[in-house]
Write a protein that binds this DNA or RNA. Structure first.
Lengths: 252, 252
DNA sequence: AGAATAGTGTCTTTGAGACAATATAGT
DNA sequence: ACTATATTGTCTCAAAGACACTATTCT
């Protein structure tokens, strides 16, 4: 065994250190369009470029989940009372290719968040600007670091996650109609769903939604009966799942 | 904005550094039992305790995936020619709770590997011993750091992954019978499957397996006809998926 | 009035799972 | 001979998806 290995196993400081950062793919629906939160970088590297919100993990002071929640709160301006508790936040993956940050070795732990419609973003800490960006637009942009790949991974995770979990409800307010829930699926998947079949399916999956007994005050802007209101049920997994239409193509 | 934040955004070195390690949950089937590779730690902390194989990432010199492959090769004694190419390796998650390593702030990127039956393990680099351990036994052991949780997460990922991907074949040699494939599912899920229905299902999923045209030289030790041989097909996802029997319980 | 939507009913096809049957090869 | 296994066949039920229909409420 090489000497360095032997030493390092007793002294991790013998290895060149890493910085550990958090980057968050925050998704929300605004006016029927899926948006991602982007910030404009104030400092080098990539000064002036758009990037995912994030920052350094405070060593020894917080868990990775806590760091992600902190970054999310800083950039969205939310706090515990004002809806942050209803945001879904999960770890997406970790990115550490050498050279991804020109300053030093940096490992970034990416998180994925689903949020209900949030107020306009405001730039926090080291960002020069922050704004909600339609994902179709963001996917075509040049982003800082390897954030383009992280965004792509986050979107694929989101599309897959709502298939077998009830997390599509995390994009909606506490009470919602089946039509609003269907709009979430249609927007995230980019596909039209059959209203009648979707309705029956959602109500048939145990624990997906539960009725509030109430009815919406108004119908949609283009008419129709007033829809019944539901809230998220107690299921953590959808069984049976709600699968994306026809993925035969992407299977090979 | 606090001064430290401002400085750190331009100088990541201003934050206390992390060490970044890799830990690998390597799963294999040995004599019909699911085994995980464990190593006995030579040095502090947790000297003498069993742990997942792993080590420090070499900053600036390798990607995380490369580091994981390197650790895997070191501990299993495999090289590219001898089957390492057939091992499935994927990122599992990242663990960075403060205090998980008493020496300093350490973030561990965990990987999950599916391997065909491998030769006996031999201790590499900083390990005092290495051995394949039945997972039922490993789950009950005290493991170093937070490796018990990482192992649990890896097992759940494995059980879930073979539902919708053809990766169960990664536990088998290049050519296998449907019965051997069924044994993988039964072992990983810990449930008996109906032989007839499983057989038809596997052959009906496009791209899951493809026939070699050949037949096994011998039948099983307890008789029966010689089974046909198959190899892994070109599908990356199983459609429709092969779901675990009855998870109604774990759904809430 | 006209158009769009919520919710329900019906029918067809696919797939999951229970069960049975037959042929084969090991001990 | 006896037993376990491979493979195929049949039947039932659940679920997905196509399509149709009614009632409701908006502009």
């Amino acid at each position: 065994m090489p000497d360095e290995d032997y030493l390092a196993s007793y002294d991790p400081g013998a290895y060149p250190p890493f910085a550990v950062t958090i980057d968050v793919v925050v998704l929300t629906l605004r006016e029927g369009v899926l948006n991602v939160l982007l910030v404009r970088r104030g400092g080098e590297p990539f000064a002036g470029a758009w990037a995912l919100p994030g920052g350094f993990v405070q060593a020894g002071a917080e868990t990775l989940d806590e760091a992600a929640a902190r970054e999310l709160a800083e950039e969205t301006g939310l706090d515990e009372e004002r809806g942050l508790g209803r945001v879904h936040l999960e770890q997406l993956g970790t990115y550490g290719d050498p050279g991804r940050d020109p300053r030093m070795a940096v490992v970034s732990v990416a998180y994925l968040a689903f949020a209900p419609d949030l107020p306009e973003a405001h730039a926090g800490s080291d960002a020069a600007d922050a704004r909600w960006t339609p994902v179709a637009e963001a996917e075509g942009m040049e982003l800082a670091f390897d954030h383009r790949r992280i965004l792509a991974d986050g979107l694929e995770r989101a599309r897959s996650k709502i298939e077998y979990t009830p997390l599509a409800t995390a994009f909606l307010s506490k009470e919602f109609t089946v039509g609003e829930l269907r709009a979430v699926y249609e927007t995230v998947w980019g596909a039209e769903l059959h209203a009648g079949n979707f309705h029956r399916k959602v109500l048939s999956v145990p624990g997906f939604v539960e009725s509030t007994g109430a009815t919406a005050d108004r119908a949609g802007s283009r008419g129709g009966p007033r829809a019944r209101l539901y809230r998220a049920g107690d299921a953590r997994l959808l069984h049976p799942a709600l699968l994306r239409p026809d993925r035969e193509d992407s299977v090979r």
